[in-house]
Design a binder for these strands. Sequence first.
DNA 1: AACTCGTCCAACCGCTGGATA
DNA 2: TTATCCAGCGGTTGGACGAGT
Length: 325
Amino acid sequence: MGRSSPCCSKAQDLKRGAWTADEDKILRDYIRLHGHGRWRNLPQKAGLKRCGKSCRLRWLNYLRPDIKRGNISSDEEELIIRLHNLLGNRWSLIAGRLPGRTDNEIKNYWNTNLSKRINNHNQRQTTNTSSSSLQPTLPQTEPTPFKIDFPVIRTKATKCSKPLLINNNDPPLLLHNNPTNNAAQSTQLLDSATANNHNNNSVLSSMVTNQNMQPATTSNGFVSFFNEDDDKELLSKTDLLIDDYCNLDDAAGGFHDLLINSDVMGDELLLLSPYSDQPTTVFSDDILNQWTHSYFTATDDDDHHVNDDDNNVSIINHHFQQSND
DNA sequence: AACTCGTCCAACCGCTGGATA
DNA sequence: TTATCCAGCGGTTGGACGAGT
């Protein structure tokens, strides 16, 4: 793979620094007319003396219509902390769980607010525990910062562009990580499903598994749920995360609960990720079954909820691409 | 009022890896 | 198979701003 030539050559006399309102308007108007993408050529076409990267960043972090303005709420803050515990500095993944927030915003918020608070908190905890066991506990009014001594999930997202349609009458697809279920076979399995089910409601699947994970009875990675609104919705294989379509507040067992209770998974099997020197969190079949069952059989009218009987749900167990290829 | 210092955050930079010719 | 394009990611930077002296 070659390195790209720098798109923002300093010799090109491109403007840098803060954007003006005029530039914003030009970019917004251009994207409104032509859509975004092709960032490299966009400035020239739009008449902006900026590099494509700069335009892209300005659009994504500021001009996008779905950007959420205003302070991070306490709920959002708590979610950021919990997601950071699980994902580490994967700002884009974290941002993906916070609608309207950008990775840059979350990263800045973390660096300027949360990391300090958490450091202070941990420092005080260390002091408390080292000095005396009779030290009073921290006041309960202390905001949520805490540190779960729990391994960060390291994912390796795999981008797939191949459209996939799966029969909604088929049983949910569950890919286990086991020695016979490597990435190629998973792809084959899904492609086969694709070929057999092109007239049916869509469900998105993903297929990256790790061929060295054992035992066969252990599932790891993430699970995503998909409901279908249209009869022929077309989705693409892509990288997924837990709760892409889950209600975070779902008391029946959504990701929120999983995050809140993540420390209870300490008893679950931990395996080494093939591409990281850090342990990978593994959800046992029991947890997955319990979680998915309660989720599927939840009986409210939320659009995100689907009934187990409908089979228009696919369970996708995925992630962890073999890195030693 | 002038200066210093710390904080915040928009923007930049280097890099990665998938897509494609 | 290789080179290049391109979008995206995460770390870093630097200017704006407010608080303190």
